[in-house]
Structures are given as C-alpha cells and as structure tokens.
Simulated assay, not measured.
Amino acid sequence: MLMTKLQNLPTVVLFCSIFLFLLFAKNKWESLETLFSPHNLKVKGGPDFAYKSAIGFEWECAIERTKETKPSGLISPPPPVAKRHPLEVVYSTEYNFLLNEPKKCWERSPFLILLVITEPQNFATRQAIRQTWGNESSVPGVSILHLFLTGVHPKFGYLLQALLEEESSIHRDIIQQDFLDTYNNLTLKTLMGMEWISKFCPNATYVVKADSDIFLNVNYMVSHLLQPHLPPKKNYMTGYIYWKTKPVREKAYKWYVPREVYPNETYPPYCAGPGYVFSGDLAKKIYQVAKTIKVINMEDVFMGICLHELGISVTNSPSGLFKTFHAKYEKCKLSKVVVVHPLVVPEKLLQIWPGFRDQNQTCKS
C-alpha cells in the first residue's frame, strides 16, 4: 500500500518523501554505528562489511571488504578464494534471487527484453522509465519486456528491502540477487540478467542491456536495427564499440583494473556499457563461459572478454546510432539514434517524452 500511495503523489512530493526516508535511515544508522562501534564493543574488527562501503567505488573500502567479517543475513557469503585481489569480482552461481519474475515468459517469447541496470533506492528513476522508453507497448505489434536489475544496498539494505518488495508486487518487473549493489559489482548485475534469460526466457530474440541514465529510442532500434521482418541474428552484439583500449592502472580512477585482475596490455573489442544490444542466444553462452574465467570489475569489458573466449566478434552498427557523450535534447536528432548517454534525469525525461512521441511534429529525412 505504501508504494501505491507514493505513486499517486506528484514527483516533487515523491522525491521529498524518499529523501526524508533516507535522511531518517541515515540518522538511525549513525546512532547504531556509535552503539556498535569497535570502541564500545571492545572487539577487533568493525561493523558488518555489507554496511561499511559507501555507494560507488572506493579503493580503501574495497580493501576493507576483503577482511574476514561476519556477512549480513540478507547477503550470501562469497565462496572462499585463496589470495584474491580485493577488486577481483567473486562470481558465484550460489547467489540467490531475492526478487524474481520466473513466469514472465510462460505465455510469450519476447522479441526484445530490456535489462535496465538500477540501484535499489532509485524508485523515481524506475517509474520514469516505465512511463517513457521502458513502456512495453511503445512499439505496436512487437512483444517487449522490461526488467530492472538490482542488488542489495551496501548500507540501507534492510531498510530499503520492504519498499523494493512493495514496488515489485505492484509492477512485477524487478530482479534482485543477494550481492552488494556497488560499482565494483556491476558485472554481477549483468551476469544476473544473463542467468535470468538463460533460465526463464531462453526464447527471447534480442536483449538490450541499458543503464538507467540513458535515452533509449526503442522504436527506432526495432525498426532500423533489429527489423522484426528479417530472420533473427545469432551470435550478435552491437553498440558503441571500443577497439584496442588499455586497462587503467591508476588507483585514483573508478575504472582502475590492477594487473593481478587483468594482466594483458589491451582489452578485446567490447561495446560501451551504457547501452548495447545482443541476440538472445548469447545470454546462455555468456552465462556459461563466465563460470570458467576470471571475472573483472569492468562490466562492459568483461562482456567483450566473454565474447573473445567464445570466439565471437562484436558487430559494427551503422555510424552514430550509439552515442556515449552528453547531447542536448533535440527531437529530430534523437529520432534517428538508438542510445544517448547521458541525457536526462528522471524529471526531465518525463517532460520531454510527450513531445518526442508526438506524431504531429515531423522531421526532415
């Protein structure tokens, strides 16, 4: 009922409600931290590692999380790995689904699945996407399914879980496993999506992996790139392709990848992470090969590594369809691209969408 009431509130009120909730949660947490600090408990160590790390990438926190600590009951303990570097992602088939939609494909085989990467607390972002480019009825005659992929918030996991479950019960579009939702674990989110398709929707024709801060032109992508009237592509992945890029070896950057995690001097070709498209048959192949190789903390690069291991090449897309730089909103320019990153925040997306979909405003071809 809480999420139902929140949906009926204006956007500004919704943001204020969520802000106040998180502020209250933060204060409660800080009081608990004081109560259960190492000084008060007089024990060596500190609070549960699931709640020590801040949102995003921090090298020191990554190191701290490798120390022996008692894992949270909401999170599966990672399997033991001898002499593991703190930035080496632990990929385990033992992660459990906390939220799942296993029946989504029982009565249909979607032409397109949108796997949207999101953080647990981003309620407003998910709602904006549902009302705009994530709308499953946006392309007439084409079966589209959207799913939001998320993990467990590093600090407010328990407090946010009830809200997530309420949101899930309303929209039935959230997939969650019990790993920490951090920048370093983005690879786990995408692999969770590959696992979900492999197990619950293996007949999907195409899949898009999308970040939640992109502008996705689903209609143009379907009509000009995927073309439902043609035979489905196999072993296909396309997007904005990076060639012969080198790992970042400086610790100051969030893209830092140490030699212990990835020793080679260059990466295989890969599609930029904000948004890329692949054929449904690749999901199971990537999910299976990921179990056999070392997982790295760069999600999009790791997809390229998986393709390299499989002997599959990325496919060039028509020039300009995938843009990885900020662009000012102009309807006619955006009408002929697939992905723009980043473009808008949720409020702006809701404002521009009606005009973007307005059929009365035509553009010169």
Rank of each mutant, 00 (worst) to 15 (best):
276 Y>F: 15
262 Y>K: 04
4 T>I: 02
89 V>F: 00
137 S>T: 15
324 T>P: 15
246 K>F: 03
17 S>Q: 09
2 L>A: 11
300 D>M: 03
88 E>Y: 03
118 T>V: 15
174 I>Y: 01
250 E>K: 11
90 V>K: 05
147 L>E: 01
55 I>R: 14
268 P>N: 12
132 T>E: 07
260 E>Q: 05
45 G>P: 07
78 P>I: 12
62 A>P: 11
314 V>N: 06
289 V>R: 09
289 V>G: 03
284 K>G: 04
16 C>Q: 14
308 H>M: 05
91 Y>P: 05
329 Y>L: 11
109 S>V: 04
293 I>A: 02
315 T>Y: 07
95 Y>G: 03
204 A>V: 14
142 V>T: 12
293 I>L: 02
342 P>L: 02
133 W>Q: 01
321 L>P: 10
324 T>L: 13
211 D>H: 08
108 R>H: 07
303 M>Q: 07
198 S>D: 06
273 G>A: 05
303 M>R: 00
96 N>W: 01
266 T>N: 13
14 L>V: 11
357 R>C: 13
304 G>N: 06
162 A>W: 15
165 E>F: 09
310 L>S: 03
243 W>L: 12
113 I>V: 14
197 I>W: 06
40 N>L: 12
92 S>L: 10
95 Y>C: 07
112 L>H: 11
51 Y>F: 10
80 P>Q: 11
263 P>L: 03
77 P>E: 05
73 G>W: 11
231 P>Q: 08
141 G>A: 00
116 V>E: 00
284 K>P: 07
206 Y>G: 04
292 T>H: 01
306 C>Y: 02
125 T>M: 11
173 D>W: 04
63 I>G: 08
140 P>T: 08
264 N>L: 15
47 P>K: 11
133 W>V: 08
273 G>D: 07
6 L>K: 05
183 Y>W: 09
240 Y>I: 05
58 E>G: 10
58 E>I: 03
207 V>I: 10
188 L>S: 10
162 A>T: 15
94 E>S: 15
158 Y>P: 02
184 N>K: 00
325 F>V: 14
330 E>G: 04
144 I>Y: 10
322 F>A: 06
23 L>M: 05
46 G>T: 11
107 E>N: 12
125 T>K: 08
250 E>R: 15
213 D>K: 09
175 I>S: 03
213 D>M: 08
230 L>F: 09
296 I>K: 05
188 L>K: 11
159 L>T: 13
38 P>S: 02
161 Q>D: 11
217 N>G: 02
269 P>E: 02
270 Y>S: 06
344 V>Y: 04
225 L>C: 06
289 V>Y: 10
19 F>I: 01
242 Y>Q: 11
361 Q>H: 14
247 P>R: 08
331 K>Y: 09
235 N>L: 11
248 V>T: 09
249 R>S: 12
152 V>P: 00
286 I>V: 12
261 V>N: 05
259 R>N: 02
101 E>W: 02
64 E>L: 15
71 P>I: 08
